[in-house]
Design a binder for these strands. Structure first.
Length: 561
RNA sequence: CGGGGCGUAGCGUAGUCCGGUUAGCGCGCCUGCUUUGGGAGCAGGAGGUCGCAGGUUCAAAUCCUGCCGCCCCGACCA
């Protein structure tokens, strides 16, 4: 590709809307342009990368027996109503105004629709069907460039099996395929167990990449590889100390003391001597959730303990329920259910709110004063706590979800009546799995992990070109000829070459563009070296430059690639 | 949806508080000449519904009202 004729609009200045490196780099290198919030056009360079990622995915999906479909994005709403997912998706689903269609946010229903009546016998199973297509979700807040968009490219596949054991096999095939895909893309990733959320189904795992731009928070153990979404992560921590002597309960005047930090400062105590109260409304009834110090209530864990309708109490409800505002609420005299985090179990000499504004109480003994409290693991783990598997230190950080594999079960086949006949002629719902990869996220994560202050550092196999050929002094006809010849030769050797043949750009301009665009090998064709039969090559990743004989070009390139 | 910020030429921005020249600057773009190993120099030039609509005023980028859009934090998130 000749740069003089190609549409690769690079930006010298930082785009003001972009914050994270991948977004900035995609804009600066002319890979994408935004059309509207969360809606991006892929320009030729960006699309080239997307196609390379999609090809890798295709190869690995085909290798496990996957068959590629091309499905409609426009779906009759009726099908989605059969599985009750119009309601489940709510405002996240795009609705077409002038016909009863929706824009598909995923494709379980449509794949199941096609399976119905066609996968009739156990002999037809298993099947793995996949597609690489655009999905639509009306995200309330798109962000981080292509990482969270309202329209995005997703590889989703669906497995259809006759037994749960076979589903395990399909799931395992995907697990292995996903590892190969992300390995081939050169990503540093890890796998976490996750809750299945609104998709329904049992087991699920997420493929994650560590990034400040991530929307998930995970706990990770370097030494044993334990990884879990912080929503479900456990940790080993010391319980609070039970003192030999239990003081009796006494009231303390604490004007303007609201937070645990303020309370600790006011009383010169450690946060572990305090118990924080949060009021939740569970199936219309108040529940007090007691935590040690500033420990965070983990609402996912809480929801498991309190199934059904659950929400935090509104500030204006708190006074009616407890007699005090947030900041002065406590467990003593609380007239409804109280549950507490395990860390607090059997604690004594604790400080908490007095259910009277501007007052706290000390000397609480949970055994003595609140014998009916129920204890559960309710806290959110934090960095530095012990790994539940090996007791090494856990690290908690943000991560981007690249892929997610689910054992769906029969939720969709039940709802849509996708049945097969077993050996005995009995009908059963087909057992499904569902497996997604965010294709643009793969590109974004690659950039997050492979850049420096000058720009992108591409390496095989995602690099849009192998070689960035920079020809200088092009107004010299001899040099122009040399550049053109080299360009042709490199291509005939099978390399993908981006040829900077611009006559009006200065050398420095070209060098900086090359570093920004980041092809693995830069070849600099300059007059002086050329006259000595030599040429300069630069390794973008290491920055190493070498001047070689013209006839050594190919072997040198192959070493770098 | 809550909180905060922003919207002025393709990009980045000044001016807005306190209304008053022809809306300024850098980059980019066009023409010419000179340059050509780390984002060139000189000269000339094009390019603006100041987000949109309404209002106040002799006068609005600037003040008021409504709306739209974008970014960040939060809520939400198969």
């Amino acid at each position: 590709m000749r740069l003089s004729k190609s549409f690769i609009p690079t930006l010298k200045e930082l785009p003001s809307d972009a914050v994270i490196p991948s977004h900035i780099l995609m804009l600066r290198t002319g890979m994408v342009r935004m059309l509207s919030a969360g809606i991006y056009s892929f320009l030729p360079l960006g699309y080239k990368v997307i196609k390379k990622i999609a090809d890798i995915i295709r190869e690995e999906m085909d290798a496990i027996g996957g068959q590629e479909f091309h499905l409609p994005a426009l779906n009759p709403k009726e099908i989605w109503e059969e599985t009750n997912r119009v309601e489940a998706f709510g405002d996240t689903m795009f609705h077409v105004k002038n016909r009863d269609y929706v824009l598909a946010p995923t494709h379980e229903e449509i794949m199941a629709f096609h399976a119905k009546g066609v996968l009739k016998s156990y002999k037809d199973l298993p099947q793995i069907w996949y597609q690489i297509q655009t999905k639509f979700r009306n995200e309330p807040r798109p962000r981080s460039g292509v990482i969270r968009g309202r329209q995005f490219l997703m590889k989703d596949s669906y497995s259809f099996d006759s037994t749960w054991e076979n589903l395990d096999k399909s799931y395992e095939l995907h697990d292995q395929a996903y590892r190969k895909i992300f390995d081939r893309c050169g990503l540093k990733y890890f796998v976490v167990g996750a809750s299945s959320g609104a998709m329904g189904g049992s087991k699920s795992e997420e493929f994650m990449v560590r990034s400040e731009a991530g929307e998930d928070t995970v706990a990770f153990c370097e030494s044993c590889g334990y990884a879990a979404n912080v929503e479900v992560a456990a940790s080993v921590i010391a319980s609070i100390t039970r003192h030999g002597n239990s003081k009796s309960v006494y009231e303390i005047h604490t004007p303007d003391v609201k937070s645990i930090d303020e309370l600790c400062e006011f009383l010169k105590i450690d946060q572990r001597e305090t118990a924080k109260s949060r009021i939740y409304i569970h199936n219309e009834k108040p529940v007090l959730v007691l935590m040690s110090g500033n420990d965070d209530v983990n609402e996912t864990k809480l929801a498991k303990v309190l199934p059904g309708n659950l929400r935090p109490g509104h500030p204006d409800e708190l006074k009616t329920i407890t007699g005090a505002d947030a900041g002065s609420i406590g467990p003593l005299e609380f007239k409804h259910r109280i549950i507490a985090d395990l860390r607090l179990q059997d604690g004594n000499n604790l400080y908490s709110g007095a259910n009277k504004n501007d007052y706290h109480v000390g000397g609480i003994d949970l055994q003595r004063d609140l014998p009916n409290v129920e204890y559960f693991d309710l806290r959110t783990v934090e960095s530095g706590e012990g790994c539940p598997q090996c007791n090494s230190k856990l690290e908690v950080f943000k991560a981007i979800e690249l892929g997610h594999i689910f054992k769906l079960g029969t939720k969709y086949s039940d709802a849509l009546g996708v049945n097969f006949l077993d050996e005995k002629g009995e009908a059963h719902p087909v057992i499904m799995g569902s497996y997604g990869i965010g294709v643009e996220r793969v590109a974004a994560c690659y950039l997050e992990q492979n850049h420096d202050e000058y720009g992108i550092i591409w390496q095989k196999p995602l690099n849009p070109f192998d070689i960035h050929l920079i020809a200088l002094n092009l107004k010299n006809v001899e040099m122009e000829k040399a550049g053109d010849d080299l360009y042709e030769n490199l291509q005939s050797e099978g390399f993908e070459v981006l040829y900077d043949d611009r006559k009006d750009a200065t050398a420095g301009f070209k060098f900086n563009d090359a570093d920004l665009l980041g092809m693995p090998v830069q070849i600099i064709l300059g007059e002086k070296n050329y006259k000595n039969g030599k040429i300069e090559l630069k390794n973008r990743r290491t920055g190493e430059k070498q001047i070689v004989e013209f006839n050594k070009i190919i072997e040198t390139i192959k070493k770098i690639l």
